[in-house]
């Protein structure tokens, strides 16, 4: 899927000249120097906003994502409330300056769809039935986008939910794999996503081995698709370790005071 429809002219010409086969060189090295099964550098921080009940900041490559969680609190508007459980209100939103050409701040159809699939990726992990008639708000702001923002948004949102003290069955962690330059590759960046053959974002509840988001667009054989899913799951497991570290490190100082 495309993050932007239009790019500045120079960039466009550069992209048009870039064929998929040039994305990975003969030695299996990608444009940014990564190997096919290598994640971009990741940085996660928990509890970064003082007003939100829970929050997280995540960088993955050039993606910069901030998530704030509020609630559970009384659901507004009233009619969205469910008598037997809490609802998650999720907004995935891209800042106007997050991509090369300014994006209108009004929600696009892509934003609407992503907000929905991200919500559905998080819901299985949260004990919604504990808090009937309430709402948990998850605000995901993409401050800078470089491919794979829905996955990075999910990883950060799970951190923010845990930081808010909302009871969860498991964390949720997400990562994409895809096909670029004829090879199955992990964690596609924007250029690889756009020029490459396919992208497969996956979200996982790691302890329960439950896949809570799975999408794909492009062109893959069944075998390639399965290989991409497995590679993405491998990425999820690596990110999960970083996620736990980020959560716990917030409290390490207290731990040391023993």
């Amino acid at each position: 899927m495309k993050v932007t429809k239009k790019k500045p002219k120079k960039e466009r010409e550069k992209m048009a000249n870039k064929k998929s086969e040039k994305l990975i060189d003969k030695k299996g090295i990608r444009l940014d120097g990564r190997k096919v099964d290598e994640l971009r550098p990741v940085k996660m921080d928990v509890g970064v906003l003082s007003n939100a009940d829970g929050s997280a900041y995540l960088e993955q490559g050039r993606n910069k994502i901030l998530v704030g969680v509020y609630g559970p609190k009384e659901a507004h508007p009233r009619h969205i409330a469910k008598q037997d459980r809490a609802v998650i209100q999720c907004r995935y939103h891209m800042a106007p300056f997050s991509v090369d050409e300014r994006k209108s701040p009004a929600p696009s159809r892509r934003d609407v769809e992503l907000s929905k699939v991200i919500r559905e990726a998080l819901e299985p992990a949260v004990f919604l039935e504990y808090y009937p008639r309430t709402s948990i708000q998850v605000y995901i702001e993409i401050l800078q986008a470089d491919g794979g923002t829905r996955c990075a948004g999910i990883t950060a949102a799970a951190l923010a939910l845990a930081d808010a003290g909302i009871p969860m069955r498991d964390l949720v962690v997400a990562c994409a794999a895809g096909k670029a330059g004829g090879k199955i590759a992990l964690d596609l960046m924007d250029t690889e996503d756009k020029v490459g053959e396919a992208d497969v974002p996956v979200a996982l509840m790691p302890n329960l081995n439950a896949i809570t988001l799975l999408q794909m667009d492009g062109n893959l054989s069944v075998d390639e698709f399965n290989a991409a899913v497995d590679m993405a799951l491998g990425g999820c497991k690596k990110l999960y370790e970083l996620q736990k570290e980020a959560l716990k490190s917030k409290y390490v100082s207290a731990e040391e005071a023993k």
Binding site: V117, P124, N209, L213, Q215, N219, L220, F225, D230
Partner: peptide, 25 residues
């Protein structure tokens, strides 16, 4: 027989890895 689009959705459940392989078959 190649896959061109996949979408998981439909609420608060999930799939296991095996179920996805079964579904592609």
């Amino acid at each position: 027989g190649n896959i061109c689009a996949v979408q998981k959705g439909g609420g608060s459940g999930y799939f296991t890895r095996e179920e996805i392989s079964e579904a592609t078959k």
